[in-house]
Simulated assay, not measured.
Amino acid sequence: MKYDLLVAVALLMLALAAFSHLASAYDPSPLQDFCVAIKSPISTAFLAMNGKFCKDPKLVTANDFFFSGLRNPGNTENPLGSKVTLGTVDQIPGLNTMGISLARIDYAPHGLNPPHTHPRATEILACVEGSLYVGFVTSNADDNRLFAKVLNPGEVFVFPIGLLHFQLNMGKTNAVAYSSFSSQNPGVITLANGLFGSYPLINPDVLAKAFQMEKNVVNFLQKQPWPDN
């Protein structure tokens, strides 16, 4: 297990390094050593870049590049049986303008990270514990083909930017994976949440016709809680 974990972490670090080169096509490339993000402009702020204002470099500390939130398991006691813990620019201000971020995903037995997309990033996922069934679906122009694999510790899978993808814990024990993204803020759109949990709700006639289901089924789905992950 320790060997598999080291392999997975090493692969993840290589992916982060690769993404830092490729991400210039999406997030703006940095024009300075760093631009630590702050939530609002103050007298010590520099020019805003990529939606964030920059802290005065003389006030930057090591903590601006540090995050301990991925060391603890996420709470999977929810209907999905999974929990995503993000490490984006909102958690690590030093990521601002760097074009990368990461996440930890914990899965209870048979837990699911449901079908979703990241509108601003390609994702590479490394399985470090358990067994995961993962996959993505191509666009309509490519006939919505499914690409799927079962991952074991030390194995990785790539989800191209913007495409619908998912992960399911295949085992009877907990599973853990780490993801890296080619954006400091990849964003997420969960299919079920967006369609049946929007605010205000989408007209049921739209969803009934789109999914070729009875309107009362749509009404039922729209009344369900759709937890964020």
Rank of each mutant, 00 (worst) to 15 (best):
Y3R: 02
D4A: 00
L5N: 12
L5S: 12
L6W: 05
A8K: 08
A10M: 09
L12H: 05
A15F: 05
L16G: 09
L16N: 02
A17W: 06
A18G: 05
F19G: 01
S20L: 10
L22I: 03
L22D: 04
A23K: 14
A25R: 02
A25H: 10
P30K: 02
D33Y: 09
V36L: 10
K39Y: 09
S40K: 09
I42S: 14
A45W: 15
F46G: 15
A48P: 15
F53Y: 09
F53A: 13
D56Y: 01
K58P: 00
V60I: 07
N63L: 11
N63I: 06
F65Y: 10
F66A: 00
F67I: 04
F67N: 05
G69Y: 03
G69S: 06
L70K: 10
L70M: 11
R71C: 02
G74T: 05
G74L: 05
G74K: 07
N75A: 07
N78W: 06
N78S: 07
K83G: 06
T85I: 12
L86W: 01
G87S: 13
Q91P: 08
I92C: 00
G94S: 05
L95N: 01
L95Q: 09
N96W: 00
G99T: 11
L102K: 13
R104A: 07
I105M: 03
I105L: 07
D106H: 06
Y107N: 09
A108T: 07
A108R: 14
A108V: 07
A108G: 08
H110R: 15
L112R: 02
T117W: 05
A121S: 15
T122M: 15
E123Y: 08
E123F: 06
L125N: 00
L125I: 04
L125D: 09
V128E: 01
E129I: 04
S131C: 07
L132I: 13
Y133P: 01
G135C: 01
G135P: 04
V137Q: 07
N140R: 10
N140D: 11
A141H: 12
N144W: 14
L146H: 02
L146A: 05
L151G: 01
N152G: 08
F157A: 00
V158I: 15
V158Q: 15
G162R: 03
L164K: 12
L164A: 12
F166M: 10
Q167Y: 11
L168S: 11
N169G: 08
N169C: 07
T173H: 02
T173A: 08
T173W: 06
N174P: 10
A177V: 10
Y178W: 06
S179Q: 00
F181Q: 13
F181K: 14
F181D: 13
S182G: 00
S183L: 10
Q184R: 04
Q184E: 03
V188F: 07
V188M: 13
I189F: 07
I189V: 15
L191A: 14
G194C: 13
F196G: 11
P200I: 00
L201H: 09
I202N: 13
P204Y: 13
D205C: 13
A208D: 03
K209W: 10
A210C: 14
F211V: 06
Q212R: 06
N216E: 05
V218F: 09
F220L: 13
L221M: 14
Q224E: 10
Q224L: 15
P225D: 08
P225N: 09
